[in-house]
Amino acid sequence: MDLLTIIIILLVTYYTGSIIEKKHFKKIKKREIALYNRPYVNFQIKKWSSSRKVASAELVTGEVVISGDYFKTFIAGLKNLFGGRLTSFESIMDRARREAILRMREKALNANMIINVKLETMMINDINSGKQGSLPGVAVIAYGTAITYAKK
């Protein structure tokens, strides 16, 4: 009976997880294309100069907390034995990073550009805590300085 429960949970979470992931990627892609011509760069403000007058420079942030599903965690657990890339978590990391950057950029829609973009991550839940049902979650924070030029 134990085995059956695990198989059912795996099937369900594989199905739901892949649907959610596909939807998320689709959304991310749409938003990235929409923001295509709004620059965001990661050089420092000291090295930047402009002939235009800057009206404001303010901090913009975007955070996202994202978790792997049961299925992805299960595969990662299996990989423990053989080693290798945790590909099931790579897609989660990809989603988290892009989502965080997008949120930051969407916060600065009125600005002309974002400079000095930085990314930070942290684990929300430890996979090695040994507790049953603990899911690995990752938080990504993107922050930068939004520059708005003065109107001519």
């Binding site: 594989y14 997880g17 892609k29 294309i33 053989f82 990809d94």
Partner: peptide, 19 residues
């Protein structure tokens, strides 16, 4: 956006069956 170095080519289902 759909094809870069950060996107893994292997599908989770296949990997699961293999492991």
């Amino acid at each position: 956006l759909d094809d870069n170095v950060n996107i893994s080519k292997t599908s989770d289902g296949k990997e699961f069956l293999y492991l």
